[in-house]
Amino acid sequence: MLQKGLNSFQIKVIALILMVFDHIHYIFSGIWDIPMWFTMLGRVSAPLFIFISANGMRYTKHPEKYMLRLWAGSVFMSLGNRLMNAYFPLPGGGIIMNNIFSTLFISALVIYCIRKIQERKREGQPFVRYLLLMAVPVVSSFLIVLTMLAPGLTAVSTVIMALVPSVLFCEGSFLFALLGVGFYFCLDSKKRLSLFYALFCLFVLFTGYRPGEGLLSVFTADIQWLMIFALPVMLLYNKQKGAGMKYFFYLFYPAHIYLFAILAFYFAGR
């Protein structure tokens, strides 16, 4: 009997396909005329990955192991991005900054700490260490900024940025990190999820609107608000895991970005 809706694996596949369109536009635009709708489709991708990650924190029996995988992916991407930008620079001066793992890790860390704080409060146990742990991505942001501004300490900022994901320098910045936390607390109600996400996208729309350029600017300047079209997919989620292949997504994400970057480097030089 066929199950209604979409399971976790199917939603990740949808997000993955849309992500590839987005990265094709970003990486190859300096070589070919890639249509704008490629990146418009891509606006849906990150929210879907964040949504599934929040669900993963809800259902996983081993949240620590899940967060460790995200952290390892974040460190790998930080180092990989640096190497790719050094040896295979994108045409047109663009750089590779993609690292959704850092954003997912911060969201998962905050969710984990909030859960632990709630548990400790119910048991009458101290929970200060979880407050401190939750503050790590914020503290790392300040340390990165300070070391970037201090003469001779830029190497230190690079190390901190690579090893300790920060709310200011993760993909999508603190907004996307908070989006994952918001998703987590809306998972039990589709109405609450819809309202939260609609308001979030509305905020993104207003912050991206440029009055001097008119209404057309929301389709040409900052199109991040198009992420609202991820909502119908989220509402189809049936809370089923689906097929395994969890490591496939961890591997495919950096692999396709770096492959595209290498191809763009050689095509641009021909």
Rank of each mutant, 00 (worst) to 15 (best):
L2M: 13
K4G: 13
L6D: 09
N7G: 11
F9H: 15
F9E: 00
F9M: 03
I11N: 00
K12G: 02
A15L: 01
L18I: 03
L18P: 00
M19L: 07
W32C: 09
P35H: 10
F38E: 04
M40S: 12
L41E: 02
R43A: 04
P47H: 06
I50N: 04
I50L: 14
I50W: 03
I50G: 00
F51Q: 05
F51T: 04
G56V: 01
Y59L: 09
T60R: 08
K61S: 15
M67D: 01
M67C: 08
S74T: 03
S74N: 03
N81E: 05
M84K: 01
M84N: 00
M84R: 02
Y87G: 00
G93K: 12
I95F: 12
I96L: 15
M97C: 03
S102C: 09
I106K: 06
L109P: 03
I111E: 05
I111H: 02
I114T: 01
R115F: 02
K116D: 02
E119R: 14
R120F: 14
R122G: 11
Q125W: 06
F127M: 03
F127A: 15
F127S: 15
V128A: 14
L132K: 07
V136K: 06
V136E: 02
P137Q: 08
V138N: 11
S140I: 04
F142D: 13
L143T: 12
L143E: 10
T147V: 05
T147C: 11
P151C: 04
G152R: 12
L153E: 02
T154R: 13
T154I: 04
V156M: 12
V156Q: 05
S157K: 07
A162R: 00
L163H: 06
P165F: 08
S166H: 06
L168P: 00
L168M: 15
E171T: 13
G172Y: 09
F174C: 13
F174D: 03
L175N: 12
A177Y: 07
L178C: 15
L179C: 13
G180N: 09
F183E: 07
D188Q: 14
S189H: 10
R192Q: 13
L193Y: 07
S194A: 15
Y197M: 05
Y197H: 08
F200C: 08
C201M: 15
F206R: 04
G208C: 10
R210M: 12
R210G: 01
G212C: 09
E213T: 11
E213V: 09
L215K: 09
S217M: 10
F219T: 11
T220W: 08
A221C: 08
D222C: 06
Q224P: 02
I228L: 15
A230C: 07
P232G: 07
P232Y: 04
V233S: 01
L235I: 10
N238W: 10
K239Y: 14
F248A: 12
F248C: 04
L251W: 06
A255Q: 04
H256Q: 04
H256S: 00
I257M: 14
Y258M: 09
L259F: 14
Y266N: 03
F267C: 10
G269V: 08
G269N: 13
